[in-house]
């Protein structure tokens, strides 16, 4: 068997040595923090106007995480590029000749990718939270309030799982353009549209993005199908399914 630490070192070198890939990860941080900060600032300045006719309690955590949607997009692109650029350049054949144990290889890739995504996501989540709260002034909350700390960790875990989900899907499709063409419409068109249609809404509730959004909840809302932990498990199931699917395709297919 190939040495697993050797695979990890090798995959780490691969990811850090391509600028475009590193940039998408930096972008995840910038857009999540930036948009959250902007919305927090605007909310603070126009609080009474924004909150008029809204009976639900104000969610200071959710306001700080207003930029999650674009952050998700950036980290999905990171997951797609990190795997997909090997296919677009034909480098996958060089990789598989060096490490013919394909299952081990993908495990190594996912470990490196997941670790990087987790570190960046944790930093992003906490910086987003604190920046948002600082800008919300009198309307801010703290990590000590019920469920807030869990929601911040939830945001980080959700971003990490999205990255690995995207990586798994890209391995299954073995083409980065196709992977982006499937993932972006899925998350940003299909899922929001289906959630708005009464009959299929129940189905859309089990999509990874809806499940992930449950993980950020601080207040109980009416008509929620499930809570944050179930959301986490659903999201995890999608991620593992994508990675296992990717491993099966990688093992079976001619490179």
């Amino acid at each position: 068997m190939a040495s697993f630490p050797a695979i990890l070192r090798s995959e780490w070198t691969k990811i850090r040595s391509v600028r475009s890939t590193v940039w998408t990860l930096a972008l995840t941080f910038v857009v999540t923090v930036g948009i959250g900060a902007l919305l927090s600032l605007l909310t603070n300045d126009n609080f009474t106007e924004f909150r008029r006719n809204d009976p639900s309690p104000f969610d200071a955590t959710g306001t700080a995480f207003s930029g999650m949607m674009l952050g998700e997009l950036a980290i999905i692109v990171f997951g797609v590029l990190a795997i997909g650029n090997e296919y677009s350049s034909g480098m996958i054949r060089v990789t598989l000749a060096a490490v013919p144990q394909r299952g081990t290889l993908l495990t190594g890739k996912a470990t490196v990718l997941g670790t990087m995504a987790l570190v960046v996501s944790l930093v992003t989540a906490f910086v987003t939270f604190f920046t948002g709260q600082a800008l919300l002034g009198p309307h801010s909350t703290t990590l000590g309030e019920p469920h807030v700390l869990r929601a911040v960790f939830g945001a980080a875990l959700y971003l990490t799982m999205l990255c690995l989900f995207a990586a798994g899907v890209t391995t299954m499709l073995h083409n980065q353009t196709m992977a982006l063409g499937v993932l972006v419409p899925f998350f940003f068109l299909l899922s929001p549209i289906l959630s708005a249609v009464p009959k299929v809404r129940t189905l859309a509730h089990y999509f990874p993005d809806y499940a992930g959004s449950r993980m950020l909840l601080v207040y109980e809302q009416h008509g929620q199908p499930y809570g944050p932990w179930t959301g986490f498990l659903i999201c995890l199931a999608w991620t593992l399914a994508a990675l296992v699917g990717g491993a099966l395709v990688l093992r079976k297919r001619d490179a």
Partner: peptide, 18 residues
């Protein structure tokens, strides 16, 4: 069969490390 954005040395480095 090299990523266009990676340097020659880094390409050989990841291969060597693996």
């Amino acid at each position: 069969a090299v990523h266009p954005g990676r340097t020659a040395r880094d390409h050989l480095l990841w291969l060597a490390q693996s």
